[in-house]
């Protein structure tokens, strides 16, 4: 693997993060006078001045930008308007809860989605295939907030077997995980199926069958490893949709994670917390995509060569 490929990828990732930081800065400054926002329209001019001075809002815009960038790289991202604590701290204490939900969801998604897709492809155009794919389309189409509300209606309101809010025991995980994993597993099932079908049509599979390799071995040793390569590509997309799904699901089930914090911060216009959350999401997604790109180049040299030509 060429060093240039690596450097190019890392450079692109850094560039994207810089773009995102700039995007947040521009959006922040365009959105109006933060001092007015905090104190409201009837604030006296003296206290507004003090606040502007304290936050450097009366400096020229390019100076503000430079200060902002240096602050970001020093990890100083402002304080929450609501309780005056460091925004980084406010966000950081919510991360474990969100991650624990994501791990479980990711595991359930992969355990259901990929085998379902493989089964569908191996039994192409049979009843099993059609039933799986119908379920997948339905899983894709049901919005997760509606699914979550339906689950609460059935399991919490009607049958009273599962708690509808909180995150204290394993029972609290059941409904949020179902809510998030349904659409994800559907995506994986569809994608795995089409990747698998494409591989099964390749000449080397026909060759393997023709020379008498048992079918199970063909699937396990010839088809699956090759089908795994395209599946890796949607990992970046998977993390993105886990984050979005998490934001909605945490709000439906009052899960005390980052997603719920983000929506509360947006509603209260607690901009420091919003920007820390966005940066956190951006950095994790860019890193994930970088890892996927490198892993993909490593798994499939053809792609690596093709991509470095294209860039």
């Amino acid at each position: 693997m060429s060093i240039r490929f690596f450097i190019r990828k890392i450079f692109r990732a850094l560039l994207t993060i810089c773009l995102i930081v700039t995007f947040i800065f521009v959006a922040l400054r365009l959105s109006g006078d933060s001092a007015l926002l905090i104190f409201g329209p009837d604030a006296d001019s003296e206290s507004l001045e003090i606040l502007r001075e304290a936050w450097g809002l009366n400096k020229p815009i390019w100076q503000q930008y430079v200060i902002y960038i240096s602050n970001v790289f020093h990890g100083d991202l402002g304080k929450s308007y609501l309780d005056g604590r460091d925004a980084v701290e406010v966000v950081a204490e919510r991360i474990p809860k969100t991650l624990s939900l994501m791990w479980v969801t990711a595991a359930v998604t992969l355990l259901i989605g990929i085998p379902a897709g493989i089964q569908s492809a191996l039994h192409h155009n049979t009843k099993r295939d059609r039933v799986t794919m119908t379920l997948a389309v339905m899983g894709l189409s049901i919005p997760n907030f509606f699914l979550g509300v339906l689950l609460i209606l059935l399991f919490s309101v009607t049958w009273r077997v599962l708690p509808s809010a909180g995150s204290d025991s394993w029972k609290h995980y059941i409904m949020p995980v179902i809510t998030m994993a349904t659409a994800e597993a559907a995506v994986f099932a569809r994608f795995t199926r089409s990747a698998m079908l494409e591989i099964l049509n390749q000449p080397y599979i026909r060759t393997a069958i023709a020379k008498g390799v048992p079918w199970k071995k063909v699937v396990r040793e010839h088809a699956l490893p090759n089908a795994a390569i395209p599946i890796v590509t949607i990992a970046g997309f998977f993390i993105g949709s886990l984050i979005v799904g998490g934001v909605i699901t945490e709000n439906v089930f009052a899960w005390p994670g980052v997603g719920r914090l983000l929506v509360t911060a947006v509603a209260n216009r607690d901009l420091a917390v919003v920007q820390v959350t966005i940066l956190l999401i951006a950095v994790s997604m860019v890193t994930a995509n970088l890892i996927v790109d490198i892993a993909y180049g490593w798994l499939d040299p053809r792609v690596r060569d093709l991509r470095s030509e294209e860039l």
Binding site: T16, I20, I24, A27, G236, G240, S241, I243, V244, V247, L262, V263, V266, V274, I278, I281, A282, M285, V286, N289
Partner: peptide
């Protein structure tokens, strides 16, 4: 592609 659009629109 680096940020889900849902998050971008939420911010804006």
């Amino acid at each position: 592609a680096s940020l889900p659009f849902f998050i971008i629109s939420l911010t804006l």
